[in-house]
Amino acid sequence: MKVFAVVVAFLVAVATAHESCYSQVDQACSKINSKPGLDQELIPCNATYGHINIVTKDLINFANTHIVRSFEYLLMATHYGNYQMNRAGFEKLFRGLSDEKWHEAIELIEQITTRGGVMEFVPPKALNGVEKTNNVYQLYEIQSVAKALDMEKKLALEAFNIHKEASGRSEGKHDPEISSYIEKEFVHDHAKTIRKLAGYVTDLKSILSGPDGSLGLFLFDEYLQKQ
């Protein structure tokens, strides 16, 4: 019985020792012939704290969604750059969105690593069950803006979801650093982009129900070039 108690006490001591970076470093320093960090990683000495683990997977998915969206917008821009479509304004709009998603993907990776996470490169959930048909990015002007609007709303909701996961104060899932990051870097920008695209759909709808849609699209494209 006594032996058992001693063993338990020892185990508890070891467990608590491993919880602090200092104690692990201290332990490693006292072993004269072993250097810290060489034979074992100093696990409590990483950057993770708070409830980052709850949202890491979601942040990884969010970053991967951005990469995929960036390439999709690049294809939409390409379509408007060909001589038949010849819409430099629409090309610029989608290239801008493509650049934006790409840079946000890099920033998300940096955020994940800032909080001690490891980025994983895996297909995002947004690709699940989506079969790629041949003409999916070769769309008419109003269709492509409508598609972009849908894509942006999905990104906005994904950001809301991460925010929710990091804000469960009562359930002990509280990570204000993440929720603030999502608000500052994504939430407000999404609202602006969505409003802008919805406005474009409104304009295109009225232009295309008018007598000369072709001329209307030319003028609207010219307007987009100046944005």
Binding site: L74, L75, N135
Partner: peptide, 10 residues
């Protein structure tokens, strides 16, 4: 144009 880039590049 749609098939110019794979839907996912690992």
């Amino acid at each position: 144009v749609s098939t110019l880039i794979d839907s996912y590049i690992g």
